[in-house]
Design a protein around this nucleic acid. Structure first.
Length: 163
DNA sequence: GCCAACGTTGGC
DNA sequence: GCCAACGTTGGC
């Protein structure tokens, strides 16, 4: 698979796009994921330079808040080795790490926050993973056409659509 | 290896 | 707060 665009879910109560914007170098480790399908994507697929839709889940409203990019590809998620961390995994070890993280850097906020309802209303996004019934993956591939559509929905008139 | 019970996600 | 959908766990 050579998807170049991804959607990453975050609960804004925990860490929002605004938090990322304020972070040092506008960059954060994106990890704590304890799902194997998501792990495989983080470990094997996300590459430096890939585009990221930063999605606020479990929010009022939920939706895409901003654009980020991958600045460090998959590496062992340090939280799995920290007994004090709630994502600690006693069955993992540095020699055989089980969970992975990437680093992402904010590129820009969307001119308009694009709500989940707006995404659902967009016929051309019908096949988007996020919108599929029961979809829960916190790392999802985004097709190029979907990426462009979301950016268009989030752009103010005349804004540059390219990342 | 089956599958019921349980935990989590996340929209509503 | 509810609950549907899904993933994981663990008894057998």
């Amino acid at each position: 698979m050579s998807a170049r665009h991804w959607l990453l879910k975050v609960e804004p109560e925990v860490f929002s796009f605004a938090d990322l914007w304020r972070a040092k170098k506008r960059t954060t480790a994106w990890g704590g994921v304890r799902n194997y399908q998501a792990r495989n994507l983080l470990r094997d697929e996300l590459a430096v330079g890939d585009g990221v839709l930063f999605y606020h889940s479990n929010a009022e409203p939920s939706g895409v808040a901003g654009v980020a990019r991958v600045v460090r590809a998959g590496y062992p998620d340090p939280t799995q080795f920290d007994p004090r961390d709630e994502s600690f995994d006693a069955k993992s070890s540095p020699a055989a790490p089980r969970w992975f993280a990437v680093d992402v850097q904010a590129v820009r906020a969307l001119a308009r926050f694009v709500t989940l309802a707006e995404l659902r209303a967009e016929a051309s996004l019908e096949g988007m993973e996020l919108l599929r019934r029961g979809s829960r993956l916190s790392v999802q591939p985004v097709a190029r056409t979907e990426w462009r559509t979301v950016l268009r929905l989030g752009a103010s008139i005349g804004a540059d659509l390219e990342l």
